[in-house]
Design a protein around this nucleic acid. Structure first.
Lengths: 216, 216
DNA sequence: TAGCTGCCGTACCGTACGGTACGGTTCGAA
DNA sequence: TTCGAACCGTACCGTACGGTACGGCAGCTA
């Protein structure tokens, strides 16, 4: 990976975080409503300060997305002994985390913002969102999958393929429909079904990658 | 389905189609570059005409997306006898069509445009894109899945669930990564692997939903 | 030829917004 | 108490762009 991006700490003072919070709120409320004047008013700060701290509008946008995306760290999965049972619970937890994140209002907003940004030859926001979303899950899931394979509980050639299949089974068409504003996916409509979807996806994943019981 | 949208013919004169082509080209070249002045110049027409034909900028955008999305009709799948073999070929063809469409430059542009639009409380473009993308596939795939079930070649309770699983297995994380501008997914990088991905997805789909051979 | 229609090209207007400048205030340090 | 740094609020500038107006031209009809 040649490009290194600022996933670093990039510490913000409390006051700056208040500004970023205001910016995020504006983004969530009204995607294109992130004008410098609006942020300044919402955060009770001067535009001059915004430019001093973040350089320009793009800098503010990047700082907001980056800061927020990094906050969406999902709870660590307890990776105890690795029996068939704990492995399944871990997988389920990953599915639950993934679904919970992508259906959240903040995640939808960040993804929309990054997609909009990507439509203008700018990929920095997309990279940040990817890095903190799918790729974060992948980094944490892969070792567990491989541990499962080592323990003869799972069976696959490429852990990359296994991860991507898992992603597909869990996310299906939910994310793209949410990003496109599909009204038939009410927030509650989705969240109410998360548990069922988690179970279904996990079942399917084990059906595809679980070690056959009656097998050498 | 309560909402009926203008998927109708909405005939455009050749001259108007030339204008829409210019608009689409601008969208593809530079997502946010769709200014009325740019379209007028590219299409060698006057802004006055644009407003006369399409009402306002949003009308032009909608007409462009709608006209283009409707053109992305994928080839009809020959639905012959429905043996195990033809069913599999049909499923593979659907997977191939779906992957080919979503990885295309035009599709990426339309989806990005619609997502951007959806970030501004406007869902019309999203509905159009959904209707002509995933939902079009669904409308055509479901009958085949159900025919497969009737012929005891497939096994599932809900054809809706079966369709969505199929979608997930085929699309995985490809679409969201493309929308976010993931550079590690070169165009060729993806298209070269389509056949392998089609086969893998189809295999997995039949592993999950194919009727067990040694059963009842 | 006269007149009408449709359209091109260009000029124009109003506004929204990114970015800058500056006066005034608070507050901590010397 | 004085100085300076940080920052708020506001006014300001330039530009880009959506939308409108208008002059001119081509083509059709009578």
């Amino acid at each position: 990976m040649a490009v290194t991006i600022k996933v670093n700490e990039e510490v913000f003072t409390p006051r700056q975080q208040a500004v970023l919070t205001a910016a995020l709120d504006l983004l969530v409320e009204n995607g294109d409503g992130l004008t410098m004047t609006a942020v300044a008013r919402r955060a009770s700060c001067s535009k001059e300060t915004l430019y001093k701290w973040f350089g320009d509008r793009d800098g503010l946008l990047t700082a907001t997305v980056q800061w927020q995306a990094a906050k969406v760290r999902m709870p660590q999965v307890t990776r105890t002994g690795l029996t068939a049972k704990t492995l399944r619970l871990s997988i389920e937890q990953f599915a639950r985390d993934l679904l919970t994140v992508i259906t959240g209002e903040v995640s939808i907003t960040l993804n929309r913002t990054a997609v909009t940004h990507a439509a203008q030859e700018k990929d920095s926001l997309g990279i940040i969102v990817l890095e903190n979303g799918p790729l974060a899950i992948r980094r944490r899931l892969k070792p567990i999958l491989e541990a499962g394979r080592d323990a003869r509980l799972l069976r696959f050639d490429s852990s990359e393929d296994a991860y991507r299949t898992f992603f597909g089974l869990v996310v299906r068409d939910v994310q793209i429909r949410l990003l496109l504003g599909d009204k038939s996916l009410t927030q509650s409509n989705v969240t109410d079904n998360i548990e069922a979807d988690v179970k279904a996806a996990t079942d399917q994943f084990f059906a595809l990658y679980g070690a056959k019981v009656s097998n050498s």
